[in-house]
Simulated scan of single mutants.
Amino acid sequence: MSAEPRLIAGARLALTTFTVAPVHAGRIDRATAGTAMALAPVVGALLGVPLAGVLLLLAPLTTPLVAAGVTVGVGALLTRGLHLDGLADTVDALGSYRRGPAALEIMKKPDVGPFGVVALVLVLLVQAAALAELAARSWPVVLAAVVTATAAGRLGVTFACRRGVPPARPDGLGALVASTVGPVALIAGTAAVALPAIATVPGRPWQGPLAVLAALAVAAGLLRHTVRRLGGITGDVLGATVEVVTTLVYLGLLLSG
């Protein structure tokens, strides 16, 4: 029997890494991991569809904020809350002002410190408030906005796994995926996410793509700081990247002038 094609294996790994989909991971190696990280924005777009559906379904039945809060909760359920956990652990480590192994040790602790709690509350509040504002808009705009934000969050992971970014540990998810994504996948992923972003702000086709690029630029700066402090990326850093980019894109889509 021939080996499973890398694209299929990578898609399976991407689904098991970024969602609760009952898909068994097949072949796992760095080549497959690179394909999975390149496909991360596609998984994000797929997640965005049911989330937009939840928001659109509940918005007429309850208040916008309740509908938005439930949508955020469903998003956490569909991803096992791993990205939120990664955000809390990463912020706790950075907030400790420690470096290298000492900071990594903080990330491994099961409890959440004050910095992590504040980061979680802030991100969840901003995402819920943004979705509540979006709930009043037409369904094509809601769908485009939610798909764009969730896909962009995973595109942040693709960028974090680009060549030249080292892992912080010799094992774990970071070691498996670090430096596995080449420039072609980065360009293709950015174009694929920017396309639906054009429809997110009626009358301003430039605002959605600009929001995506600005969020990625901020995430790149945060990633450089994190790599300096930790020595590289970890699975927690990737989770934090998802939440930061997603939140920033929502903010960018709602800015008016």
Results as ranks from 00 to 15, higher is better:
residue 1 M to V: 15
residue 1 M to A: 13
residue 2 S to V: 11
residue 5 P to I: 14
residue 5 P to F: 08
residue 12 R to G: 01
residue 14 A to Q: 01
residue 14 A to P: 02
residue 15 L to H: 01
residue 16 T to K: 07
residue 17 T to H: 09
residue 18 F to A: 05
residue 18 F to I: 07
residue 20 V to H: 09
residue 20 V to I: 15
residue 23 V to R: 09
residue 23 V to Y: 01
residue 24 H to G: 14
residue 27 R to C: 12
residue 29 D to V: 12
residue 30 R to L: 05
residue 30 R to N: 10
residue 32 T to M: 08
residue 35 T to W: 00
residue 37 M to L: 15
residue 39 L to R: 01
residue 42 V to Y: 05
residue 44 G to N: 00
residue 47 L to G: 03
residue 48 G to I: 03
residue 49 V to P: 07
residue 49 V to W: 00
residue 51 L to N: 00
residue 53 G to M: 08
residue 56 L to E: 09
residue 56 L to V: 13
residue 57 L to S: 11
residue 58 L to S: 06
residue 62 T to M: 14
residue 63 T to L: 14
residue 65 L to Q: 08
residue 70 V to A: 09
residue 71 T to A: 13
residue 76 A to Q: 12
residue 78 L to M: 06
residue 83 H to V: 03
residue 83 H to G: 06
residue 84 L to K: 05
residue 85 D to F: 00
residue 86 G to Q: 05
residue 89 D to P: 04
residue 93 A to M: 05
residue 95 G to C: 07
residue 96 S to R: 05
residue 97 Y to W: 05
residue 101 P to C: 08
residue 104 L to H: 10
residue 106 I to D: 05
residue 108 K to L: 10
residue 110 P to D: 01
residue 110 P to V: 02
residue 110 P to C: 03
residue 111 D to Y: 02
residue 115 F to D: 09
residue 116 G to F: 08
residue 120 L to E: 08
residue 121 V to G: 03
residue 122 L to A: 15
residue 125 L to K: 13
residue 125 L to I: 14
residue 127 Q to P: 04
residue 128 A to Y: 00
residue 133 E to S: 07
residue 134 L to A: 11
residue 136 A to G: 15
residue 137 R to F: 11
residue 139 W to H: 11
residue 144 A to T: 07
residue 144 A to C: 06
residue 145 A to L: 02
residue 148 T to P: 05
residue 150 T to K: 12
residue 153 G to V: 12
residue 154 R to A: 04
residue 155 L to E: 03
residue 156 G to R: 08
residue 157 V to I: 07
residue 162 R to G: 11
residue 169 R to T: 13
residue 169 R to Y: 05
residue 170 P to C: 11
residue 170 P to Y: 11
residue 173 L to N: 01
residue 176 L to F: 03
residue 177 V to F: 01
residue 182 G to Y: 04
residue 183 P to W: 05
residue 183 P to F: 08
residue 184 V to I: 13
residue 185 A to M: 02
residue 187 I to H: 14
residue 188 A to E: 03
residue 191 A to V: 05
residue 195 L to E: 06
residue 195 L to W: 13
residue 200 T to Y: 05
residue 205 P to M: 09
residue 206 W to F: 13
residue 207 Q to V: 08
residue 210 L to K: 07
residue 212 V to M: 03
residue 213 L to H: 10
residue 213 L to A: 15
residue 216 L to K: 08
residue 217 A to N: 14
residue 220 A to H: 07
residue 222 L to Y: 13
residue 222 L to D: 13
residue 224 R to K: 14
residue 224 R to S: 14
residue 226 T to A: 02
residue 227 V to T: 10
residue 229 R to D: 06
residue 231 G to F: 04
residue 233 I to C: 04
residue 233 I to E: 04
residue 234 T to H: 01
residue 234 T to S: 06
residue 236 D to K: 00
residue 237 V to R: 01
residue 239 G to P: 07
residue 240 A to G: 15
residue 242 V to F: 04
residue 243 E to N: 06
residue 246 T to Q: 15
residue 248 L to T: 04
residue 249 V to A: 07
residue 251 L to R: 00
residue 252 G to K: 01
residue 254 L to D: 01
residue 255 L to R: 10
residue 255 L to T: 14
residue 255 L to C: 13
residue 255 L to N: 11
residue 255 L to H: 09
residue 255 L to A: 13
residue 256 S to P: 06
residue 256 S to G: 10
residue 256 S to L: 12
